[in-house]
Write a protein that binds this DNA or RNA. Structure first.
Lengths: 193, 193, 193, 193
DNA sequence: TATGAATGAGGGTTCATTCAT
DNA sequence: TATGAATGAACCCTCATTCAT
């Protein structure tokens, strides 16, 4: 339910009223209970049903990609941004950060089915690059997180302090700075440019 | 109030009961009202009083530092990690992310007094490095955020999904990977290595 | 509706859901409204349609009986037990006890059409016995209730605490003790008076 | 809580609103939750705390009584009537009948701590009377229930159909008829057997 | 200053009732 | 006639806030 996701992201679980979800969804409060047995079940459904399709697309892209690791990495991060980071779905990231402590089982699910799978995509790309000598050898596990961090923060920013910052950054500039720093730090051969 | 901060960080504002704060603080619920006129005022006080001392220390260090930009940046990030990232105070980051939407005025305050000032510290370091030719020329504003992102994510991770991840990363490895990627991407002279 | 009666008896009016009645009856909830305009109307119908046939049979028996008052009384109580007390219909007794206060008009109906008519049957038997000298003269109105009480309690027991009592009484022994006490009394020595 | 007992007796558990209990008790709805953790706990407390003192008094009387079984039985039944039957506490009887099915654990408690103990009092009296030859030998267990039934019905009547019956019986006449029938039986001629 | 009993508005949930099919 | 999705009023329960002590 898109209305529920938006409100949960905006206000958090506890501060979101079923009344408001129902109103925004254009149904009555009782109707929600025809599809979800409780507020908590609705919360879980919102997270689980929203996030999975994105991963599937990422995995498909990885399987099909031909070309060097540099372009694959860039394509992967761009795809992720377009399909997820730039859409409302990315609110799930903020939501999980806020509510993981209150819903350990949902957090566990999210970790196993989203985080682990998502990191696997980046790991695959890095390992290809290292194996072919395009990327420097480095601690891959840490690198995955370092690589993803700026994009995650961009999302988090959007759903938290973004509205407060008058002079907001341009996401495109931010992302290209990220790529620039990342790749020029990462590449062995390209350093001479 | 440390009890209040911990609980707000752990559960969020709406899900935290004054009863629990009072119990953990070892006082009665009524006593809280002798010091804070409402739950919301307590929330604001917790954020404002917790965060400011850290910035002061950062600014002092910047004023006193002698040496090259590389070591200054590293020292700055290390200091920030020790004084803030590794302590309970960093929970404020997770708290602001979760609650910014519900407390626009607190978010505004936080943005102006914490984010802007904190970014100013990093900006100063970067600008010194660029001016002296140690750092490549780049979009400084974006770079600030990209540089801080991995440390922010490390904090966020600790207060959200960290407890779910069995094979948690070692923060030290993560941070050194971060520095490595960052500096080797950033430096002009070092590239030839 | 037998499903409705059973559930009303088991749980009471307020605690019985139309959903459950419909399910047990094998129809949909909406279908109930084709036959009863509200839950309350269903309740009334269940009581009124369940109880009347029993009285008719009692009255027929009284009209036809030949013989002494003692055997008539015993036959009457036995018939009542077989046709009503031992069947699910007797749940109406427990139901009226529980709900009389909430449905004064149904209680009024029940009183006038069931209690008054039923007591009339016993009164007729007692008066025959007193008139023919078989029974002692006594306050007939009180005696009617005293005579019926043990059978009523047997029914009530079945629908209330019966399931809790491990060593439940045998109804036949109970009833024969009742007839014995009723006809002969408790005392040994005083009989000669 | 006397207000709660009265309303539970009058309307049943499900049909009684906490709002009404609170109003009748002269407190606010929230105050009830300072003393009872739920509506169900209030229900249980009302039953358990209301009924026990009566049994204690009955047991004391039995222990102290000197005299013949006939007068003891009569005194016992009279005491029970005065302390319990004629007071509001007797509403518990109607309440347990109505709600036993919905609260099996309360029913179990009531059976073990009230019914069994209460029957024990009457059993003791009957056995004394039979042992001394004052009472006829009979099935004691059944007799207990038969003896108590009219008094139970008098209580039940009061809380159910009593208000509907214009020409209500006089309880005193009813009780003396009960004693008379119980002790002497119905029959005139058969006494010589 | 400190307490904790009392309050009552507000939210999650249930369920009798309706109505388009 | 029969269905079952949708409704919304009503109820139990929570918890921020107050106040007498």
């Amino acid at each position: 339910m898109v209305a529920a996701l938006d409100l949960f992201v905006e206000r958090g679980f506890a501060a979101t009223k079923l009344d408001d979800i129902a109103t925004r969804a254009g149904v009555s409060k009782g109707t929600l209970y025809l599809y979800f047995s409780s507020k908590e079940e609705l919360f879980k459904a919102v997270i689980q049903q929203g996030i999975l399709p994105v991963l599937v697309q990422g995995e498909e892209m990885l399987a099909q990609h031909q070309g060097d690791a540099r372009s694959l990495l860039q394509a992967m991060l761009m795809l992720w941004w377009e399909l997820f980071g730039a859409t409302n779905l990315s609110g799930i990231v903020k939501l999980m950060i806020s509510e993981a402590g209150n819903f350990p089982d949902v957090a566990q699910y999210y970790y196993e089915n989203v985080i682990v799978r998502g990191r696997g995509l980046i790991r695959e790309v890095l390992e290809r690059g290292v194996a072919t000598g395009q990327f420097r050898a480095l601690d891959v596990e840490s690198a995955i997180d370092v690589i993803l961090a700026p994009q995650m923060m961009l999302i988090i920013w959007r759903y938290s302090l973004g509205p407060c910052a008058c002079g907001q950054q341009n996401p495109d500039v931010y992302l290209s700075t990220h790529f620039d720093l990342l790749l020029n730090g990462l590449m062995v051969e390209e350093k001479k440019q």
